[in-house]
Design a binder for these strands. Sequence first.
DNA 1: TCGTAAAATTGCGATATTACGATATTGCGG
DNA 2: CCGCAATATCGTAATATCGCAATTTTACGA
Lengths: 112, 112
Amino acid sequence: MTTNEDSGIQLRQDELLAALRALSNPHRLSILQWLRDPVMHFEEQKVDATRYGVCVSSIRKRCEVSQSTASQFMATLSDAGLVQTTRIGQWTYFARNEDAIARFRSSVASDL
Amino acid sequence: MTTNEDSGIQLRQDELLAALRALSNPHRLSILQWLRDPVMHFEEQKVDATRYGVCVSSIRKRCEVSQSTASQFMATLSDAGLVQTTRIGQWTYFARNEDAIARFRSSVASDL
DNA sequence: TCGTAAAATTGCGATATTACGATATTGCGG
DNA sequence: CCGCAATATCGTAATATCGCAATTTTACGA
């Protein structure tokens, strides 16, 4: 019987590396920062951005990149666990995963 | 009684990005971590590793990469400001730049 | 079951990174 | 000055990443 404890206070080395890689791109770094205050940094939208985050279209416009690029950016941040996804109808909303970001901070603070 | 004047200072966005990019490689991330305890993680050498850090040859052996690759890794970490360099004779010693790392931590804590 | 809209996926060219061997540079000692 | 050792830099090939257009998938509404 193995105890799988992946909701700990810090990240594993491979998770830490994945987070660092995800944030090593200027667009993706800015997106995560903008998501701290989505109402300020993105256009208005149907659902509450503070609760659900923002959709790909909003990110596309703010970054001035193509739809596929914006989608790929969010997939990378999602794979690294830094954002959480909520699908509502045709829209996919991305919000910060504050727990994961806190673990990332904790890892940077103690494992680096 | 000393006051750490750097504890509240953060990196500019481009400096933060450079640090994240420098750490987005498994070798470079490990090197910076190993340098927390150079005596434990690297072979013995002439000068005090705790004071001056370790030379390229030690890093080369520990990482099992070529001399040029090890040298390039350290140049990248140095360009990002995460390590400081001390040239003694034919050797270049690399040690953690704790002030810069503290600023990186501070940036991750408050700008991310 | 259409048509439409949003997002995800695929495939591609351009660019960047990685890691190497070869070579140049730096610094010591004889 | 010469030879040697350590490191830095250069040129390279392989691989990875970036960002796009085109296409596919998913979901809604008429």
